[in-house]
Design a protein around this nucleic acid. Structure first.
Lengths: 335, 335
DNA sequence: CTGAAAGCGCTTACAG
DNA sequence: CTGAAAGCGCTTACAG
């Protein structure tokens, strides 16, 4: 309500001085600074964000690109909620607000770029819901500070944050080995996705490192959903040599695998041990509890916030950040 | 990049005319309008949001107040993600963006109100995570268009949206009755919350309507979390007369109840039938599947969007909106 | 350390 | 139907 002009008059200074009190306090006389601050407090002065943005070309807002098209339900993954909150919290702490961008309906090449310009967004974070969206590329090339989650991106001021999918998968396989399992199968994620391919690579690498041979029929591709996990597990159970363990590249699929195993009259972990990936809430709720490779969801959000703010502040694009995972051992893998 | 002035010069008209083309197209000559539109398209002109907001005092942004304090994990409820998306989608369709407001760290009475003023937010939606936040009251009284979810609110331009918690609870109890159950217990939500008290009321009312007597020891209060459901169910199992059915006021608690029942060596639904509330993803994933009263999460978000936009457009505060629930019957209640 | 002035990019009565 | 002008509330060289 109160404007900078009113506050200035009240304190007997110019608007410029008031502005300096808020933006460059060290250059103004301590006594007047305190007085302005006190008066501002008293009348509840709040600098108008639009006026400031108009003058500075900076909005203190970061856009979130998150394709939530209902026809492609990748966004429902419960994992995103915690990432979102981690992102919001870390951004808030650095003085930025998060603006949820409408999913593009107009020409995709331009929609996000336009939104960024219209609102003078300082940066953008994009969540990869697995929906292939060409407009992300345009954003990345537009020159805005841009960090994506789980998906490498080309562009001048671009980086990405992801979990150590390869390392996590290796942890999982090693754990199964240490539990005495020697015939370890995997249900992978979709081949097109970063996490899908990386977790599969980790599986392959660790098998080799352990000196176990890899059987083609022990690798089945899933889709990250429960039903895909069920189907994939059924196929594994029909393999000539039935595995005694399976590393599943996502918790939802892993729950599906548990179901398929139960349906076949087999026991977890006695007959088949199961390890998932993600550590969604569900992992701790099924019986037996699902051993899984936990992603640091809040950490991913925070790392994205940190990276985008660094670039906004003029830093070069930081290298991709790969966050460590943690193996959470529950009943599904331990006798 | 391009400004209204450049576009105007390009078309040989005044900036005022260009402005009218975008804000009041019907008043400008059709030929010039088309020409301006075409030129705008061509040079990729995007009206600057800050300049517009500064001039009009309207931002086309709605704030989301969502307390995600990590010490109080109410916000983790998976239900919020779908509401959030429903809200965002419906808001986008009406030309509004959603701004996630930082949780207040400064004096709560002012923080949100300040954010609203700074950014000229047109309206606010607040998610009640069950965290008692006094600042919400200040917001409601501040005169901004304001809709809250699941929590009645006093204020000049205020309304709220909620599921039919009473009716949903009655559906659940009636369903159990129709399955032949006559000793129906309940695990309620916390007494302080709207959904908690309403679902309990529905239970009580339907019991009465069915002519069943209500036993005090068959009503146990839970906390909406899994562990609370386990504890509450254990208490019910120690009751002098063991119930043959239980209506649980939230799905997470219901899963806890399933667990406590299994732990006691009893079978669901044979010994005890269970019905939950919410229809979170988990409900369809446990074995047996959890019968539950589904909330229309996307609908709640959409209704909130509609209400806030209506008030922004000058309508009086619409009456509270109570969305119907749907009983989803799964294995936990059906022999 | 401080002020006067110009400018950021729009919108909107007011005239015509 | 259109334009000139003032104004929205800030910031920031430029002088002093």
């Amino acid at each position: 309500m109160a404007t900078i002009r009113e506050l200035a008059r009240l304190c007997g200074v110019s608007p410029a001085t008031v502005s300096r009190v808020f933006n460059n306090p060290e250059v103004v006389n301590a006594r007047t600074r305190d007085e302005v601050l006190r008066a501002a407090q008293q009348i509840g002065y709040q600098p108008n964000a639009s006026a400031r943005t108009l003058a500075t070309k900076k909005s203190s807002m970061v856009g979130l690109v998150w394709d939530t098209d209902h026809r492609r339900p990748g966004w429902r993954h419960p994992y995103f909620q915690e990432i979102l909150i981690g992102l919001k919290t870390a951004l808030s702490g650095r003085g930025y607000h998060l603006l949820l961008l409408a999913t593009s309906e107009e020409k995709p090449e331009e929609s996000y770029v336009h939104a960024v310009r219209r609102h003078n967004l300082d940066g953008v974070v994009m969540i990869d819901s697995g929906n292939r969206d060409p407009s992300l590329g345009y954003l990345a090339e537009s020159g805005i500070a841009c960090v994506s989650l789980d998906r490498p991106l080309e562009g001048p001021r671009t980086t990405y944050v992801t979990s150590d999918n390869v390392g996590g998968a290796r942890q999982a396989v090693r754990h199964l080995y240490e539990q005495g399992r020697r015939s370890i199968a995997t249900i992978s994620g979709p081949a097109g996705t970063g996490p899908g391919t990386d977790r599969l690579r980790g599986y392959v690498e660790e098998l080799a490192a352990l000196g176990l041979s890899q059987r083609p029929e022990h690798v089945v591709e899933g889709d990250f959903y429960l039903s895909g996990g069920v189907a994939a597990m059924r196929r594994l159970l029909r393999a000539p040599e039935q595995p005694d363990a399976v590393f599943v590249a996502g918790d939802e699929m892993a729950v599906g695998a548990l179901r398929a195993i139960a349906e076949a009259g087999l026991k977890v972990p006695e007959d088949i041990a199961v390890v998932g990936f993600d550590d969604i809430e569900l992992a701790g709720l099924v019986i037996p509890g699902l051993t899984t490779v936990a992603q640091d969801k809040a950490g991913i959000g925070a790392a994205a916030a940190e990276a985008v703010v660094a670039m906004i502040n003029g830093a070069d694009a930081p290298p991709p950040q790969v966050l460590p995972t943690t193996l959470v051992v529950r009943g599904s893998s331990r006798l």
